[in-house]
Structure formats: structure tokens, C-alpha cells
Amino acid sequence: MATILLIEDDDIMLKAIRNILTRDGHEVLSAKDGKEAFDKLDNAQYDIVMSDLMMPYANGLEVVSRLRNDPNRRHVGIIICSSVGNEETITEAFRLGADDYLKKPIMAGELLIRIKKLIANRNAGAKLVTKKK
């Protein structure tokens, strides 16, 4: 089970995803725009950040970039969830360090599987680092 920051400017989508993730046992905090997201990122630790691309103040790519350039939050898993599906944007998101990309409309089951997989990969990565030390 993970602590997830959900960044989504669409109220309906925000509530819907939060309900799905909460039902699956995750702890979910939410932010409606880039500014609120940065505030929440500064004040708590998250296992996964799930972000929309288009939103006020800062877009999803800026969130990815900021997380990956912050040594303390570099390990956070990032899933981009957006209706923007052009190759350039997806490539840019991965180039900046996103772990996964979900195109809206999403499938609830698929979302949960991807989150589980991301948590598993992160845990495996952490074990490797510990072993190396």
C-alpha cells in the first residue's frame, strides 16, 4: 500500500480516482493545480505522484522535472495521466523521468495494476541499493 499524491484539476476525475485508489487501500492526498501540488510535495513524503498534464500554474511535465531534480524526492514514482496522447508529449514526459503514462479514458483495473507494478519496481530498486551498500 502506498501514499499517493493525486494531482488533477478536474473535480470529477479527482474524486473518481481517489475513490478507486482508496478502495484499493492506498492513502491518497490530492491537489488541484501545480501550485497546490508543489506545496504538498514540500510538506510530505509520497511513494507515488500521479499527475495530469494540463493544469493551472504548473503543468505535469514541470512536476516531473521538479521531482527528478530534487535529490530528496528523486525516488518517487511518477505516473502521468492525461488525455493528451501525442508522441512528443509522452516522450518528453519519459525523458524528464516519468515512470508511466496513462491515457484518458483510463481503465480502473489497469490503473491499479500499474500502481502495484510501480510500487514493486520501486521496492526492488530500494533492495538493490541496500544490498550494494
Binding site: D10, I106, M107
Partner: peptide
């Protein structure tokens, strides 16, 4: 309709 725009599969 708003929900259906965002969800496909069984939820949709």
C-alpha cells in the same frame, strides 16, 4: 457523461 469520458473498460 463526464465520468464516461474519463473511464473505459468495465467502469465505462
Amino acid at each position: 457523461i463526464s465520468y464516461r469520458k474519463n473511464f473505459r473498460g468495465e467502469v465505462g
